[in-house]
Simulated assay, not measured.
Amino acid sequence: MKSQRIAVAGGTGKIGRHIVEGLLEIKQQHSLEIIVLSRTHAPEGISYAGSNAPVIAVDYLNQDSIQRVLNEYQIDTIISTLSGDTPDAFIASQETLLRAGLAVPTFRRFAPSEFSIDSEQVKGVKMYQMKLPILRSLEEVKAERSPGSFEYSRFSCGVFMNYLGFGNTKPEGHKAHGYLAHFPWMIDLSKRKAEVPGDGECAIVYTRAEDVGKFVAAATQLEVWEEYNDMAGEVTTFNQVIRVCEEVCGVKFDVKYNTREDIIARMSPDPKAVMSNFQLEFYLAHLDGDCDVKRPINLNKLVDVKPMTVREYLKEWWP
């Protein structure tokens, strides 16, 4: 059954806000009820495309706090966009969110906080190890419940295309990032530089954050959720993206190609936090093929969303 009453956890910022806006864009067309769960209350809610979603404060470590809200709104679908760099708190928050949903009679769909590269493919990236426990819990719940009564889906979108907008000088250049943090990922167009793993022929999936919101919103109206819902604005390689950057900017980029030895030599031998070696861990994941496309990009075929390509994005934000 399609989703009708949807709660987005962590929907006030970053990719969560884009998903909320994607849902609000189709809210009236499909008569949806949308609520946003947040650690802090926002009385004005979130408004977009003529629709509004209330923002309700919950304690992500208190099941009763979440359960009361989900029950009040008779939520059938929970989309988690929670984030964090403290493993215990992040893992517990998603688990509590799921357990609260399972105590609500109307609940039947859950999307864990993926929205990047499939966390099971990049187990060498420590931050993504935090995403694995909820997947095991979801597998167990689905196995325990009667067929068709519970669905979960991992939404994977690769790298956010918006990071290619870092440092642009357009009058409203900040909008290139959407609601995401402002930093470049491996390719810095503002400095005309790139730093990539291996020979640059590693596969990479780029999807604009705004399009991720549209894809996920459209997926809520599918009758059946597949376990994997992969989307892409474009499947390419680092070298191909760099060539397009050079064409759009009209200048040759300074590109550093990192060997495995280069990467390992730069890694902290005693990381104090899960983010300490984050980018370098991803370099190794690309070298090992862990970021390659392992499955068909199914969501592009299942829903009617036309995502922006890398070239289209660059031409919008760069001279």
Rank of each mutant, 00 (worst) to 15 (best):
Met130Phe: 10
Trp318Asn: 04
Arg266Tyr: 00
Ile75Phe: 03
Ile187Trp: 00
Asn52Thr: 15
Asp292Met: 03
Ser276Asn: 12
Val125Glu: 12
Met127His: 13
Gln29Lys: 13
Phe150Trp: 04
Phe215Glu: 03
Ile34Lys: 12
Pro269Ala: 07
Ala273Ser: 15
Pro197Cys: 09
Arg109Phe: 07
Phe282Gln: 06
Thr236Ala: 03
Ile134Val: 12
Ile46Gln: 04
Phe238Pro: 01
Phe166His: 15
Glu21Trp: 01
Ser146Val: 08
Glu281Ser: 11
Asp290Glu: 15
Tyr257Glu: 09
Thr86Ala: 07
Ile75Arg: 05
Leu189Trp: 02
Ala285Arg: 12
Leu222Gln: 12
Ala217Asp: 06
Phe155Thr: 06
Ala111Asn: 05
Lys142Val: 10
Glu201Tyr: 07
Ile117Thr: 13
Lys123Met: 15
Asp304Ile: 00
Tyr313Glu: 04
Glu246Ala: 10
Leu61Ala: 12
Tyr60Ala: 03
Gly167Ser: 00
Gly158Asn: 03
Pro197Ser: 11
Gly11Ala: 11
Lys315Ser: 08
Arg136Ser: 14
Asp270His: 11
Leu37Val: 07
Leu37Gln: 04
His30Asn: 07
Val159Leu: 08
Arg39Leu: 02
Leu164His: 02
Arg17His: 04
Gly178Ala: 12
His286Gln: 07
Phe282Ile: 05
His286Cys: 14
Arg295Pro: 02
Ala100Phe: 05
Pro184Leu: 11
Val69Pro: 01
Gln121Tyr: 12
Cys249Leu: 14
Arg39Tyr: 01
Met186Arg: 14
Ile134Gly: 02
